[in-house]
């Protein structure tokens, strides 16, 4: 099955992720972060960006694949429930995906990842951005 809309693809460590291109507002360099007391470990901190506070979510920690190095860039995703910046070690651009869009798990973050989808660059986990942000709010 192919999706009708493009996805912004990015890597976090050895894993590839995709978000619907219309939810990805920009790619930013991650500045010095302000830590938040009591925040879960996948929430690296926050920074002020264009008059709002964006939380930076480390996908590698969230999915249990911690990186040796810190990602320096992040993809900003906007949904009606809020915006988050997702760490990225590489940004690969917008692509049309094929393959499966089934849930990759029944619990935790994996129920908000879909796939396995396929792009030229390899297998992609597609982030269901709407439910993903709701999950972050409940897990925060």
């Amino acid at each position: 099955m192919a999706d009708a809309h493009g996805h912004l693809l990015f890597a976090c460590g050895s894993s590839l992720y995709g978000v619907p291109a219309d939810t990805a507002s920009e790619v930013v360099n991650v500045p010095a972060l302000t830590r938040v007391p009591g925040a879960p470990s996948h929430l690296l901190g926050v920074f002020a960006h264009r008059g709002e506070v964006l939380p930076v979510v480390d996908l590698s920690r969230l999915t249990g694949k911690p990186l040796e190095d810190t990602a320096r860039r992040a993809v900003v995703v906007r949904t009606p429930r809020g915006a988050v910046a997702l760490t990225a070690t590489r940004v690969l651009g917008v692509s049309t995906l094929e393959g499966s869009f089934d849930r990759l798990g029944e619990s935790g973050v994996h129920q908000h990842l879909r796939g396995p989808a396929h792009a030229e660059q390899g297998e992609v986990a597609v982030i269901d951005t709407q439910t993903f942000v709701e999950f972050l709010a409940s897990a925060g």
């Binding site: 938040v36 009591g38 925040a39 929430l43 964006l54 939380p55 915006a83 972050l136 409940s138 925060g140």
Partner: peptide, 25 residues
């Protein structure tokens, strides 16, 4: 500055908001 939804329940909801003072958040 509003608390992002991803942090709304963080730390028992004790976060009031954020501010920028002297160039830092």
């Amino acid at each position: 500055l509003a608390v992002p939804s991803a942090l709304s329940s963080s730390w028992g909801g004790a976060l009031v908001c954020f501010v920028e003072c002297a160039g830092e958040l």
